[in-house]
Design a protein around this nucleic acid. Structure first.
Lengths: 155, 155
DNA sequence: ACAATTTAGTTGCAAATGATACTATTTTCC
DNA sequence: GGAAAATAGTATCATTTGCAACTAAATTGT
């Protein structure tokens, strides 16, 4: 019988959810960061931008902000860096002069075609052995925590 | 029937576990950071140090490194800052001259006695409504991901 | 016993990050 | 139609962070 009302008596860091979440996330992010840095010379932020563009082109910077959960300054820097390396190109937005349309260049697209399988393999290595429903519950709980933290932060 | 062998066809950022994990963790960490900054003037790192000392005193810096998953530079800075505010004190280690024993001062202890319930309440707000076993599975999976990421990073 | 190595902790420097301010457009609404 | 407010994106500056070098003490091996 689950008991949602039970409370913890002591504060033990190893059992403290925000701590565990942070440590696990940092460990996973570090792995990812190194993998993409080593194989493609991309930061995690550049990689996120490429991942979004690979699935949905073109995008405005604002679209990337929403799709990547990055702040607009971070997106701006990532796009500039990717443009410098020739992975993406900016073109004028047809109707909004403040905005630019961002898309992958052919070399950028080729890189994405290499990245995507590598990214999925990494995820598979992390999740190997867990059942589909187990994974779904885990992701659902992550989403719920994210949402609650957002709500609690508003006050 | 769970199927652990199934693989994903496309790379979709919103469904990508490392991404979700990072976003959720950042959101929760942000909440925590702001809560401790506002109420106690502590950074997350200072708070972690205090949380460990509150449960197990005294500690060497190295002990804090192991207990908090922080790197030694971060621990050094957090301890110095806490010492400057009078929350912790350093004394000579009886047998090792390189090391110092770190413990809470009486005001530091008093602060901890305020912090601990606030921290547990925050955790309860985040987890409210989830069953004990659900939470346990979630934490277990976090631990497993952390461990696998560590292993994969070694190669 | 003592040179070489390891360990504890701090410092300094360079890169990453985040908040704020700024420019240039576009939208709102009177 | 035009002033005021909002939005897209960039630049600037202060803070944070992480790495590598450093000092000092302890340990190891001969």
């Amino acid at each position: 019988m689950p008991d949602a009302t039970e409370t913890k008596a002591r504060l033990s860091l190893p059992d403290y959810l925000p701590y565990r979440l942070s440590v696990a996330s940092n460990q996973v992010s570090g792995l990812i960061a190194r993998a993409y840095q080593d194989r493609f010379g991309l930061t995690i932020w550049e990689w996120r931008v490429v991942a979004v563009l690979g699935e949905a082109e073109p995008q405005t910077a604002q679209g990337l902000v929403e799709a990547t959960a990055m702040d607009k300054v971070t997106v701006s820097r990532a796009v500039r860096s990717l443009a410098g390396k020739g992975h993406v190109a900016r073109s004028r937005h047809h109707s909004d002069g403040r905005s630019a349309m961002i898309r992958l260049t052919p070399p950028g697209r080729a890189m994405y075609d290499d990245i995507a399988p590598a990214a999925l393999k990494l995820e598979r290595d992390l999740l190997d052995g867990f059942g589909k429903s187990e994974i779904a519950r885990f992701m659902g709980m992550l989403a719920e925590l994210e949402s609650r933290a957002g709500t609690l932060a508003e006050t």
